[in-house]
């Protein structure tokens, strides 16, 4: 009987150890996965293009309102925006007229680069959500001092600033 008890105890102990080992492996896997995820992000960041102050750049994209775009990147790159208070018609124009800085969304994609334009926003209020071409100088990565802003209309670029 005591032999049977001992065998049972040994079997239980083995089961606990196996269970612990499996759980440990699962946690290790999860830990390594989490580590890899954050490591990948750093690696991506390092791969991002580096811009230097004073560098001349010309880029094309959509003229966006910097206040609303982060709230809903799909909808709020247009003229009408989804805001916490509801859907606002011609919101981009209103925000630019209020003085919120405007930016160019390079390429027009939701995951594109956003470059905030160092100019009086109200001057560009009439061109919000339009395709624009900006020639300017890099202040820092993501911040551009525009020297010329053009919009695309009837098959040609028109200078608006």
């Amino acid at each position: 009987m005591s032999n049977a008890n001992a065998a049972l105890a040994q079997a239980q102990s083995g089961a606990v150890q196996r269970y612990g080992f499996t759980l440990g492996c699962a946690l290790l896997g999860l830990f390594l996965f989490t580590g890899c995820q954050s490591g990948g992000q750093t690696s991506d960041d390092k791969a991002a293009p580096v811009y230097e102050e004073g560098q001349s750049l010309t880029m094309e994209g959509t003229l966006i309102d910097t206040r609303c775009y982060p709230l809903n990147k799909d909808v709020n790159r247009g003229l009408d925006h989804e805001r916490p208070e509801g859907f606002v018609k011609a919101c981009a124009t209103a925000c630019a007229n209020q003085g919120f800085p405007v930016a160019i969304l390079r390429g027009g994609e939701t995951d594109g680069e956003v470059w905030v334009l160092m100019t009086v926003p109200a001057v560009l209020a009439d061109y919000m959500a339009e395709e624009i071409r900006v020639q300017g100088t890099v202040r820092s990565t993501g911040v551009l001092i525009p020297e010329r802003v053009e919009t695309f209309s009837d098959g040609e670029w028109l200078t608006v600033l």
Binding site: Q98, F100, G142, V143
Partner: peptide, 24 residues
């Protein structure tokens, strides 16, 4: 809007918020 800061230019500020874009 820049205009709301006009009277505070050249003063020390402390701003807490989000950084949705590089350099902003």
């Amino acid at each position: 809007p820049a205009g709301t800061f006009a009277e505070h230019m050249d003063k020390e500020v402390r701003i807490t918020g989000e950084a949705p874009y590089a350099g902003s």
